[in-house]
């Protein structure tokens, strides 16, 4: 079962995404701020990280940047989900290594589709199976 980490400071969004993704057979862990996310990332290997950009403790760009330098989670798929529509920020997110960007309000179906696509891409590239430590 693929592992997904969702980082957002809006608890409603967290619960909703968790529910939707659980139904489709994903294992979802949530974090409400940057610090919590970093703690989780240190101990767990994820397949996909979905992050907001405006977060307490560390902004989403920092999360993206750190993930790409993190041994265990270097190959994780990163989807940025944010209400920020500012083009510079979006470019920056991609430059730092985000794989995809969705603007809030999002379409649930689209999010699911992109997650599946990312996982499929990843599996075709890498052979080893990720698992929880």
């Amino acid at each position: 079962m693929p592992n997904i980490l969702v980082i957002d400071d809006d608890d409603i969004m967290l619960k909703a995404i968790k529910n939707i993704l659980n139904k489709d057979g994903f294992n979802v862990v949530t974090a409400t701020d940057g610090k919590e996310a970093f703690d989780l990332l240190d101990h767990t290997i994820f397949d996909i990280v979905i992050t907001d950009l405006m977060l307490p403790h560390a902004n989403g760009l920092e999360v993206v940047g750190r993930l790409r330098h993190n041994q265990g989670n270097r190959n994780v798929g990163i989807i940025v989900v944010s209400s920020v529509g500012n083009e510079e920020t979006i470019t920056e997110a991609f430059r730092l290594g985000a794989d995809d960007y969705l603007k809030k309000p999002i379409m649930a179906g689209e999010l699911l589709m992109r997650i599946r696509k990312l996982i499929a891409n990843k599996n075709s590239k890498t052979q080893f199976v990720t698992k929880k430590k």
Partner: peptide, 8 residues
Amino acid sequence: KSTNPAYD
């Protein structure tokens, strides 16, 4: 200035 874009 920072060389890391996350701190631009």
